[in-house]
């Protein structure tokens, strides 16, 4: 059983997940470096699938490489670049290498990336992908053809608590849960009130669905403005950007802001952990985890 599943299903421990940096060359040495940096703090780490519609080393091979370096992967599978056949083969490839945690996403559109001229696929959507993963766990491909033995997945998904239509996001979380998702990693959210309403709503109708909100460690107001302007689905309120921009020490203010958001998120119903994004070279990760009362794992 994966550590993530064990902790979420059989304990009350708070879990911490992160994003593995995209691999663009650098070989296994770079994987080893990043794995060593993340391993002390995280239970499981996302192996992304062409995030923000940029081509990188594939999701399955990244997940395998992480596993080789002792890091438990959550293999993301995105619907933008692959049809239903390729998505099932991604999952089977992961299962072949003992990858248990998977997360099924719709994915950013191709226009968000650096090859906007590409054909978008979206043959199936994320909820259909979740359901197909569950079907595979029952020993069948979508077609009904047998898989023997059936793969063993721990299914996750994502949701954006802060994007409209807000009420419907709660129903959609339940829909993902019913399709087979056991946990939800949530999009970065700078509206604590929206996150709170979402978590309370989900806890009421899907009490077994484990929620993992995301925070991001930044060093100044600039990345906050960038996210607000360039990342569809993330809204950073003007006063939040202004608060960091106006501070004498922007890095400290940005850090404090993230810590406040994290502490608030961890108090919400249904929340079982935190997803921490740190934009790679940020050395504040260690102090951040210490401030949240975490001790490095062996």
């Amino acid at each position: 059983m994966s550590i993530l599943r064990e902790k979420l299903e059989n304990s009350n421990d708070t879990v911490f997940t992160a994003e593995f940096p995209s691999i663009d060359g650098g070989g296994m040495a770079s994987v080893a470096r990043d794995a060593a940096r993340l391993a002390p703090w995280f239970d499981a780490v996302n192996a992304t699938d062409n995030p923000a519609a940029h081509a990188h080393t594939s999701n399955t091979t990244t997940a395998i490489a992480m596993k080789m370096h002792g890091l438990e992967p959550i293999m993301q599978v995105v619907c933008r670049d692959k049809n239903r056949l390729a998505i099932q083969s991604d999952l089977m490839g992961g299962a072949l290498h003992g990858i248990e945690n998977v997360s099924l996403l719709t994915g950013d559109d191709v226009t968000a990336g650096d090859e906007p001229e590409a054909r978008r696929v979206f043959d199936i959507d994320s909820i259909q992908a979740i359901n197909i993963t569950r079907i595979m766990m029952g020993g069948k491909y979508l077609s009904g053809r047998k898989i023997n033995p059936a793969p063993n997945f721990y299914i996750g998904a994502v949701e954006n608590a802060a994007a409209p239509p807000f009420d419907y996001r709660i129903e959609r979380a339940l829909k993902k849960h019913r399709a087979g998702a056991s946990f939800l990693q949530l999009q970065i959210c700078y509206h604590p009130d929206r996150l709170e309403a979402f978590c309370k709503g989900v806890a009421k109708i899907a009490p077994n669905l484990k929620l993992i909100p995301t925070v991001v460690l930044v060093k100044s107001a600039r990345p906050l403005s960038f996210m607000n302007d360039k990342v569809a689905g993330i809204d950073v309120p003007n006063q939040t950007v202004a608060r960091v921009a106006a501070a004498a020490d922007q890095a400290k203010e940005a850090y404090d802001l993230t810590l406040e958001l994290a502490r608030h998120a961890l108090t919400l119903p249904g929340v079982r952990g935190l997803h921490v994004t740190d934009f790679r070279h940020d050395d504040s990760l260690n102090s951040f985890m210490h401030d949240l009362g975490q001790k490095p794992r062996n």
Binding site: T106, N160, A163, Y168, G233
Partner: peptide
């Protein structure tokens, strides 16, 4: 994205 089961997470403010 021809989504048939609800909106994606990219809906703008």
């Amino acid at each position: 994205k021809t989504l048939r089961n609800g909106p994606c997470g990219g809906v703008r403010e």
